[in-house]
Computed example of a mutant assay.
Amino acid sequence: MNARRTVAALAAGLLAVTLAACGSSSDDKPATAAGGTASRADREEARDAAREAAGLPPEPSVTKRYAYLEALDAIDPRISKPGKDDQSVSRGLDQCGSIKTTKDRARLVEMALERFTIDTRLPDIDNEATGGKILDVVHKHLCPDF
């Protein structure tokens, strides 16, 4: 496990403990259409429903997120930029939308290379093999049901 993943895992754990320890007042919650307030669970449910309507899977759990980022690092540690884990997850979830709607593997490989900016940022690994590995990692860890 590399150092940034360890730090990220520790930060995520600390954030979870901090959020659990902190209560929130009704002032912290957004208003709902009926004039009430939405709970955190309601907001997360609404976000997941919107993602599903857009053809995207829900945000991965901490465990799935970690496994996904580690799998990207196993392909090449430069794919997931340091400090940009959220960006890598977002790009992966977007790739899931493409997996759901596109059945042409060659096109999906091209899209993965473009989406993760391999084609412009890392020309030395801009090839079908790398794109296929990224595609497989996204599919396995973020949207196995697609």
Rank of each mutant, 00 (worst) to 15 (best):
A41F: 05
M1N: 10
R107W: 10
Q87T: 14
R40W: 10
G131E: 00
G23V: 14
D42I: 02
N127G: 02
T6H: 09
V138S: 05
P144Q: 13
G55F: 00
A31W: 03
A71N: 03
R107V: 15
S98C: 02
H141S: 09
P60T: 10
Y68L: 09
R105V: 15
R91P: 03
P60R: 06
A50D: 03
A67P: 08
V7P: 01
Y66P: 02
T102E: 15
T18Y: 12
G55D: 04
D126T: 12
K64Y: 06
G13V: 15
A16H: 10
D124L: 13
P58V: 02
K103T: 15
G83H: 05
L15W: 07
V62P: 08
C22H: 14
E44L: 12
L14M: 15
Q87M: 12
V62R: 15
L15D: 11
T120Y: 03
G131M: 01
L108S: 06
H139Y: 06
D104N: 15
T6M: 13
G97M: 05
A112N: 05
K84W: 00
T32M: 08
D124H: 12
N127T: 00
S61F: 05
L72T: 01
A71L: 09
G83Q: 02
A50V: 00
L10T: 13
A67S: 11
R4V: 00
R121F: 00
L14E: 11
D124V: 14
A49W: 00
A106N: 11
T102D: 07
V138D: 02
D126W: 06
D28R: 03
D94A: 10
S26T: 14
A21G: 14
R107N: 11
L93S: 01
P60N: 04
A46D: 01
N127C: 02
A46E: 02
D42M: 01
T37I: 02
E70L: 14
L113E: 00
A71E: 09
R115G: 03
K84A: 08
P30R: 05
E52D: 10
F146K: 08
R78W: 01
C143K: 04
G92V: 01
E45N: 13
L93F: 10
G131V: 05
L122Q: 01
V7G: 06
A41Q: 08
P60G: 11
K84Y: 03
E110Q: 13
P123L: 10
T101G: 12
T101C: 07
A11S: 12
A8Y: 06
D124S: 15
L72H: 04
K100P: 02
S90K: 12
A46F: 01
D85T: 12
A31L: 15
R115I: 07
T117A: 13
G35H: 10
N2K: 10
M1T: 11
P82D: 07
D42H: 06
S26E: 11
T18C: 13
A71C: 06
V137T: 07
K140D: 09
R78N: 03
H141P: 09
G55C: 02
P30D: 01
A49L: 03
L15A: 14
R121W: 08
R4N: 02
C22L: 15
R40G: 07
V62T: 13
I99K: 00
D27Y: 07
D48M: 08
K100Y: 06
K64A: 14
G132H: 01
Q87P: 04
A12G: 12
D104Q: 06
M111Y: 14
K100F: 01
E128I: 14
V137R: 04
